[in-house]
Measured scan of single mutants.
Amino acid sequence: SPEEIKAKALDLLNKKLHRANKFGQDQADIDSLQRQINRVEKFGVDLNSKLAEELGLV
Rank of each mutant, 00 (worst) to 15 (best):
N14S: 10
Q25E: 08
L55D: 01
L55I: 06
S49M: 03
A28C: 11
E41C: 11
I37H: 01
R35M: 12
A20W: 12
D26T: 12
K16S: 04
S1L: 09
G56S: 05
L57N: 03
G56V: 04
L57G: 03
Q34W: 09
R39E: 15
L13F: 00
K22R: 12
K42Y: 05
V58C: 10
K8R: 15
D31R: 12
L57S: 03
Q36D: 06
R19M: 13
F43E: 08
I5C: 09
E4K: 07
L10Y: 00
D26A: 13
D26S: 15
K16V: 04
I5V: 09
D46W: 05
R19D: 12
R39G: 06
E54I: 09
D11R: 10
S1T: 13
G56I: 03
L10G: 00
Q25K: 13
V45N: 01
V45M: 05
H18F: 13
K15H: 09
G24P: 07
A9Q: 01
D11N: 09
F43V: 05
E54S: 06
Q27D: 05
N21Q: 15
N48I: 04
K6W: 04
E41I: 14
K42H: 08
K15Y: 06
L57I: 11
G24H: 09
I37C: 02
L13G: 00
D26P: 15
Q34A: 06
Q27L: 08
E3G: 07
E3R: 06
D31W: 04
E53P: 01
E3M: 08
R39P: 00
I30C: 03
G56Y: 04
R39Y: 15
K50M: 10
L17W: 03
Q25H: 14
E54F: 09
I5P: 02
L47K: 05
L12K: 04
L33R: 00
R19H: 12
V58F: 09
K22A: 12
A52E: 02
Q36F: 07
Q36R: 04
V58W: 09
K8M: 13
N48R: 09
K6N: 05
S32P: 02
N21W: 11
L47E: 06
F43S: 04
S32C: 15
A28V: 09
Q34Y: 11
L47D: 03
E54M: 10
A9T: 02
D11Y: 12
A7H: 08
R35N: 10
A20D: 01
I37S: 01
L13Q: 00
K22W: 09
H18K: 13
G24I: 04
V40T: 04
N14A: 12
R35Y: 08
L10P: 00
E53L: 14
R39A: 13
I30E: 02
N48Q: 08
A20H: 03
L13P: 00
R35E: 14
K22F: 12
E53I: 14
F43H: 09
N21H: 15
N48H: 11
Q36I: 12
N38H: 10
R39W: 15
E53A: 13
E3N: 07
V40I: 12
I37A: 02
R19W: 15
H18A: 15
R35G: 06
D11H: 10
D46R: 06
V40M: 03
N48K: 09
E3H: 07
L13C: 01
E54W: 14
F23W: 13
P2S: 12
D31G: 05
R19L: 14
E41Y: 09
K6S: 04
L57K: 03
G56D: 05
N48C: 13
G56A: 05
E41H: 11
E53M: 14
L10N: 01
Q36M: 14
K22V: 13
S32I: 12
K16T: 02
N48Y: 10
N14K: 15
K16D: 02
G44P: 01
E4Q: 12
N14D: 03
I5T: 06
D11S: 10
D26E: 10
E4W: 15
A7R: 14
L10M: 05
Q34S: 05
E54R: 05
Q25Y: 15
D46M: 06
F23R: 08
N21L: 15
F43D: 06
N14Y: 15
N14H: 15
I5M: 12
I5R: 05
D11K: 11
A7P: 01
R19E: 11
S32G: 08
R39I: 13
A9P: 00
A52T: 02
L13M: 03
E41A: 09
K6C: 05
G44W: 01
S1G: 10
I30D: 02
E3D: 13
D29H: 14
L51A: 02
N21S: 12
A28Q: 11
N14L: 15
R35Q: 11
Q25G: 14
K42F: 06
I37K: 04
L10W: 00
E4Y: 12
N38K: 14
L55W: 03
K16Y: 07
K15L: 12
D46K: 06
G56F: 06
K16Q: 08
Q27F: 07
N38F: 07
K42E: 11
D46Q: 08
K8S: 05
A9R: 00
Q34C: 09
N38R: 14
K6L: 07
N48T: 11
K50Q: 12
E3V: 06
L33K: 00
G24S: 09
G24N: 09
E41L: 13
V40N: 01
K15D: 06
N38Y: 10
I5Q: 06
K6V: 07
V58H: 11
L51M: 05
G56H: 05
L17Q: 01
A52R: 03
D31Q: 10
D29S: 14
L55E: 01
G24F: 06
F43R: 03
R35A: 13
S1M: 07
D29A: 15
N21C: 15
K15S: 10
V40E: 00
L55V: 04
K6Y: 04
L51V: 04
E53C: 12
D29T: 15
Q34F: 07
L17R: 02
D31F: 04
L57E: 03
K8E: 04
A7G: 06
S49H: 03
E41T: 13
S49R: 02
G24T: 06
F43L: 06
F43G: 04
L57Q: 03
K50G: 07
Q27K: 12
E53D: 06
L13K: 00
R19P: 01
I37G: 00
E41F: 07
Q34I: 15
L17S: 00
F43N: 05
D29R: 14
F23L: 13
G24M: 08
S1H: 09
V40C: 02
I30V: 08
N21R: 15
D46G: 05
N48M: 10
L51D: 02
L13S: 00
K50I: 08
L13N: 00
Q25C: 15
L17P: 00
Q34V: 14
G44K: 00
K16P: 00
A9G: 04
I37E: 00
A52H: 03
N38C: 14
P2G: 09
N38Q: 14
D46I: 06
Q25S: 14
S32M: 14
F23Q: 09
S49K: 02
A28K: 11
K8Q: 09
F23N: 12
L12W: 13
V45K: 00
D26H: 11
L12S: 03
I5F: 11
Q27V: 07
L51R: 01
Q34K: 14
L10R: 02
I5G: 03
K16N: 03
V58Q: 10
D46V: 06
I30F: 04
L55N: 01
K50W: 12
F23M: 13
V58M: 11
S32D: 14
D29I: 15
E54A: 07
D26I: 09
L47F: 08
L55M: 08
P2M: 14
G44E: 01
L51W: 06
L13W: 00
V45E: 01
I37W: 03
Q36V: 08
E41K: 14
D31I: 13
E4I: 09
D29M: 15
V45F: 04
K8N: 05
N21P: 02
K8C: 11
N38I: 13
A20Q: 04
K15V: 06
V58N: 10
H18C: 14
G56W: 04
H18L: 14
Q25T: 11
D31K: 09
E3Q: 08
S49T: 06
K50H: 09
